[in-house]
Design a protein around this nucleic acid. Structure first.
Lengths: 110, 110
DNA sequence: GCAACACATGAATACGTGCTCATGTGTTGA
DNA sequence: TCAACACATGAGCACGTATTCATGTGTTGC
């Protein structure tokens, strides 16, 4: 992987930041398999309509989700497969145990 | 990918949140290829010693980085390969163009 | 056109967090 | 043991942001 341009670092950080809010992450995960309408998301995750829409706006402008109108509903879905892989790997990171049995190296001081 | 336990969602979000801060992300990227000491990181990224150490503490306790003492230096490195994949995919997400040419679906209202 | 529905958005607030300053802890060499 | 080095950490402040309330925009059926 190349050194990565300094401006792209900001973009990467921005996406991570958006995924770093629990409610937003839940929204993204809900849209991972199949597309969902705003109402469905709010009801499933127990979020107010306003809050759901605010979060969706951020996820949409950051191109994490894409929006499609269906009648008077608007459905959201994951933007691309890279994002899906990011989520899968992150889950793997926390689900699977740690590779080498390094003895819980947490605090260097003591 | 399974529905993912509600408590794990918080853990995933926590890791994303930590990677969502530009300086912390730069630190992680610096430790991606080879391990770096605190001093090297601070100098390379032009961060104060205190700030560098504060960020490293967060990254260490979240198991994103691991710390190893070498003499009076402490070197940090990426914790495991899943994290490396997460970063690679995220870069791919932003570097590569969007898969289907959906016409910049950004604002549904207008 | 008009009501009802589904969603978007601006303003205001309470809360979290990144950064700095100061100080503490651990390690090496004399 | 003592000074110098390398790093860790607590307190405090300035700033960003998640949430709510109120209101606006767009769409369907009558």
């Amino acid at each position: 992987m190349r050194p990565l341009a300094p401006e792209q670092v900001a973009d990467v950080a921005e996406v991570f930041r958006l995924l770093g809010e629990p409610n937003r992450l839940r929204i993204v995960l809900a849209c991972l398999e199949t597309e969902c309408t705003v109402g469905e998301i709010g009801e499933a995750l127990n979020l107010s309509q306003s809050l759901t829409s605010h979060h969706l706006r951020l996820l949409r402008t950051a191109r994490i989700l894409r929006a499609v109108r269906h009648g008077r509903h608007v459905a959201y879905a994951i933007d691309d497969d890279h994002m899906r892989d990011v989520l899968r790997n992150m889950v793997a990171h926390l689900t699977e145990p740690h590779e080498h049995g390094h003895p819980h190296e947490e605090e260097p001081g003591s």
